[in-house]
């Protein structure tokens, strides 16, 4: 009977996401009751992973950065929205605090600030330009000092030549 169920194609329909709700519920029950069903399902999932690995496409290098930026934005947005939510939920909060589960007391004052990643190029450019200006300043300072010395020498020679 179990083998008949496994061979019915319901398991395959489940892993391809085409099983009905009733079939899924039945399968979950069968899976816990019969290890044969669980093993057959694991095999099918391994088949799906094999196919997926076979057809894998390397995502672009910047894809994760975009996802990461979105998560950071959500974090920041939550931080800004939170005070307003708290105002509305003062009563609930006191209840939750008594349970000691949903809210955590933290020191929110931080000496760090968040900026967009694009600014790193601006900072790099400012740093490089700073170095260039410094090099120019040193060069012109030395040039100027040398010129002053030469001028001084010429003046001394001129004084000597004068009767």
């Amino acid at each position: 009977m179990i083998q008949q169920y496994i061979n019915s194609g319901i398991l395959e329909a489940y892993v391809t996401g085409s099983a009905s709700e009733t079939e899924v519920e039945e399968l979950m029950r069968m899976k816990t009751e019969y290890p044969e069903v669980s093993i057959a399902l694991q095999e099918l999932e391994a088949d799906m992973e094999h196919l997926a690995r076979h057809m894998a496409v390397e995502p672009p290098a910047r894809a994760w950065d975009k996802i990461s930026d979105s998560i950071d934005e959500i974090m920041l947005r939550n931080k800004h929205v939170q005070p307003f939510i708290e105002k509305e939920e003062t009563d609930n909060r006191s209840n939750d605090r008594s349970n000691g589960q949903q809210y955590i007391e933290v020191e929110a004052e931080s000496s760090f600030m968040r900026i967009h990643k694009a600014w790193k190029w601006v900072f790099a450019a400012v740093f490089i330009l700073g170095k260039i200006f410094l090099a120019f300043a040193i060069y012109f300072y030395l040039e100027n000092r040398q010129a002053q010395q030469q001028l001084q020498e010429i003046k001394t020679e001129l004084r000597k030549l004068k009767p």
Binding site: S68, I71, N78, Q82, P83, Y103, V106, E107, A108
Partner: peptide, 23 residues
Amino acid sequence: MKEQLTYTETSLPSIKQAKQSLY
């Protein structure tokens, strides 16, 4: 000054970690 942070907010870094692992 003390501020309240919700559980969801504090767990975001761990969500990020889990997402990165999946990714």
